[in-house]
């Protein structure tokens, strides 16, 4: 199998461009590709006008908050931003556009994007402001919302273990949105806490198969630890 291990510098320079839509894994801190995000934040002049699709806005000072604070993001599509009061202020002041989507539908829109399904239909959000302006469809006498699929240019995720080919495995609650995001982008960079020889992961245990993956990069030490 191919060896997809490279440096985070090579992976980001090779695949990430200004103006792209990036899907970023993580819920809380688990699954967040901190090393990749910090590299992008360290080149704020080079990576701008990004659209980020991420469950939450991280906490102030870490993860995508660095990109949000430096004005690298024009739009964030998320489900919950409550742990980042600074971003809530940015959003309320109109500095960054933010679209909020119910969490399971957020995941299903990405799944549809990865699975070649242009849109899904759902009753989630009916009778709330989430439904405003959305196309609807009548099915068996019930009104359903049409939710277009979501795709991205590059997925950035952090796995607990990846093999050199790119097969990836997650521990505990770290998996969250990472696997589905890895199916829905043209390029996928898997940042891994541990990289093992191809064949070491049991084939039945693999969460994200390597066919989706373009680059495997080592995760550095968590940048926020020790603060």
């Amino acid at each position: 199998m191919l060896d997809r291990v490279t440096t985070v510098e090579n992976a980001v320079a090779g695949y990430v461009r200004s103006g792209q839509t990036l899907m970023v894994g993580g819920f809380g801190r688990g699954g967040v590709p901190f090393t990749t995000l910090h590299l992008i934040a360290n080149h704020a002049d080079k990576y701008r006008d990004l659209t980020l699709i991420k469950n939450d806005a991280n906490e102030p000072g870490i993860g995508i908050d660095l990109l949000l604070k430096q004005g690298q993001v024009k739009k964030l599509i998320a489900t919950h931003i409550g742990l980042n009061p600074e971003f809530i202020r940015q959003m309320n002041d109109g500095e960054v556009e933010c679209e909020l989507i119910p969490q399971g539908i957020f995941a299903e829109k990405i799944r549809a994007g990865g699975a070649g399904i242009p849109a899904i239909m759902t009753d989630i959000g009916l009778g709330t402001e989430v439904a405003q302006g959305k196309a609807t469809y009548e099915l068996d006498g019930k009104t359903l919302l049409i939710e277009p699929c979501m795709r991205g240019d590059v997925a950035l995720v952090c796995a607990d273990i990846a093999d050199k080919a790119g097969n990836a495995w997650w521990c505990g609650s770290n998996r969250n949105m990472c696997v589905v995001m890895g199916t829905a982008c043209k390029r996928v960079i898997v940042e891994a806490k541990q990289i093992v020889e191809t064949g070491r992961l049991k084939a039945e245990d693999i969460h994200l198969p390597s066919v989706f993956v373009d680059a495997v990069v080592p995760a550095g030490p968590l940048p926020h630890r020790g603060n």
Partner: peptide
């Protein structure tokens, strides 16, 4: 908050025997 098992509010927690992990889908 960096632990491998956190609840939806970001707090580290434990699981009971018979627990199962999965993705958001």
């Amino acid at each position: 908050p960096d632990s491998d098992v956190i609840d939806a509010g970001g707090r580290a927690c434990r699981v009971v025997p018979g627990a199962a992990f999965f993705d958001s889908l």
